[in-house]
Nucleic acid binder design. Structure first.
Lengths: 347, 347
DNA sequence: TTGTAGGCGTTATCAA
DNA sequence: TTGATAACGCCTACAA
């Protein structure tokens, strides 16, 4: 094992002062080209790496950003986080930052963690996922002028802070449009109870798409907490109505999976013998169903679903955060990404 | 915003020297009880937190452990990582450590990252997932005496370094035993090509269980790279044999999902009208199928699967790592966790 | 049991 | 353009 290589080692090796080495690293333009080259060679030859800890002591910056890892919920929609985290880590690395993980049971615990991370580790910024109306976390961070970006719009005020989001309304509108184009008119929707920003947004996309096509959405939607069982129950209810929908759009893959079962139970598939792909055993249901999130489950089951560009979203989160950290102190413009419809066997 | 609270602030507040404050933090036993209490009160009142950076400069320890986040593969088995990461982060926090994420395209890139993380961030240790025969990463780390734990056995030498693993052979043996108990004799296996430690282990569990029951496993297994399509192809091949198996055990949920389709295609379900649960539409196949990993997809589809205790595994990884970091310099004993069979509709 | 001095590796300030 | 000096906050000797 070689001894620890510090800036002093490099300085000695390159016959310059420590300060010059530091300048080569942080302000290359003030160093004469020839000196710069000599120092750079010494750095490479010695395999020198600046100590983050020492640097942090001076600058107060850790080049660390934190993101919360939530306990996987039903596992179906929870897998969304995986892709997001990978994109985040990768983009952060490219920008010279590292991603740190933390857990928190609720908003209060999360705020306590902010405090800890900030004072003990000097975290540079946070990436928050899943914001909602009147989020106490964003208020806490904003009050202390801590840089942060949210993946999810601040539903109260779009200019409150930098954010990245996926246009959920556009996603459900696209799904609805696809069904409309296939000749359907009475298209139902199964979503979450009113009040959640994300849920309302997805419902609105369906509603507006229907209205734009001249269809009255009244009575065609149901509200359910997330879950397969709930999706099945509500879909059955919807399909048993006086004039039932002929196709279904759902706010999540979980709901869609349940709806799919209800659809099959109500009207047995016409394509039982079809065998056109990996999940062909599920066949095309008589009542088409479209989910949301394009989870692995959707792919495995052949469920048509709205796909969110999670890798991109994560990358843009890092972009926005580093813009705040490295750039001038102005709030960067928010980013609204477009989802895409992944066609499979159920619609 | 209040000014930064340092050890000096606390010392002033509690009318003691900085050193006494440091002692309260690091060696409470050498401080008089009354003094200790006064200092502790000052710490709480001021909300003081030791600066990791400064501490790290002195001690050379960062209280950071790193874990790699892989790009989600087929999404089905990739979701395994989610639960593992959450458990890891949570246990690390409880032990006073934080988890840092990194990405790497291959082993060489990962080793380069080790070097960077070690010299720039002073990482205390690594948690590696998915080791294999002659893993260059473990060799590199061991050579430099960097503390690390693997989730996955070192297949070459069980004493090479601390590790945590799930007994895959016990899992497939349990699955096989379940089918045996149900009266099956000719139980097939679809696994990965020989050569991977994990794959061979899972296959061995099936083979031994069959042999113990007096059944000759010859000709009853197939090898396939992971994936739904591959699983379907191999299962169809197996079921078309002279004396086909009457039940199937698979090395992954992906393979099992494909096998399920082949099973249904070969012998249409006898329980089409059954409706006993969330995924009842899939019914019980004539040829029972059991998967491995208990992914969200398995749950959604009603696939019986072998479940790995990922949260526990992550926790034990942290335990072992902190034992190395905080304890005496001896290699802690490895941990082999038992998986459990989650019974659903396909077996 | 408590206090003083020095230094970890870096960067900012200022002088040469 | 380069170099000397001080300071970031903490911990480990050692002295009181």
């Amino acid at each position: 094992m070689s001894e620890k290589v510090t800036i002093a080692t490099v300085a000695r090796h390159a016959q310059v002062s420590r300060q010059t080495v530091s300048n080569v690293l942080n302000s290359p333009h003030v160093v004469r080209e020839e000196t710069r080259r000599r120092v750079q060679e010494a750095i490479d030859a010695l395999g020198y790496r600046a100590s983050q800890a020492a640097r942090q002591m001076r600058t107060g910056r850790s080049r660390l950003i934190a993101v919360r890892i939530e306990p996987t919920r039903d596992g179906i929609n929870g897998s969304v986080l995986d892709r997001f985290l990978h994109g985040l880590t990768e983009t952060a690395e490219a920008a010279g930052y590292r991603a740190m993980l933390y857990t928190a049971a609720d908003a209060a615990a999360e705020i306590a963690t902010f405090d800890d991370l900030l004072s003990a580790y000097d975290l540079d910024g946070f990436v928050l996922t899943g914001t909602d109306h009147g989020d106490p976390r964003t208020a806490w961070l904003a009050e202390r002028a801590v840089p942060f970006v949210t993946f999810g719009r601040p539903w109260d005020d779009p200019d409150a802070h930098p954010w990245v989001d996926v246009d959920g309304a556009a996603g459900t509108a696209q799904a609805t449009g696809h069904l409309l184009a296939a000749g359907h008119r009475r298209i139902g929707f199964i979503g979450w109870p009113a009040g959640s920003g994300v849920g309302d947004d997805r419902r609105a996309g369906w509603r507006e798409a229907l209205r734009a096509a001249g269809v009255d959405p009244a009575g065609l939607d149901r509200e359910a907490v997330d879950g397969i069982a709930e999706g099945e129950r509500l879909a059955a209810d919807l399909l048993a109505a006086a004039s039932p929908p002929t196709a279904l759009v759902c706010a999540s893959d979980s709901l869609a999976l349940g709806a799919l079962q209800a659809a099959r139970a109500a009207a047995p598939s016409t394509a039982t013998a079809a065998h056109t792909g990996p999940a062909a055993h599920t066949g095309a249901p008589a009542v088409p169903v479209i989910g949301f999130d394009d989870t692995p489950v959707a792919a495995a089951v052949g469920l048509t679903s709205v796909s969110q560009p999670l890798g991109d979203a994560a990358a843009r989160c890092v972009d926005l955060l580093t813009a705040v950290l490295d750039g001038p102190p102005r709030t960067p413009a928010p980013v609204l990404l477009q989802p895409s419809l992944v066609l499979r066997h159920t619609a």
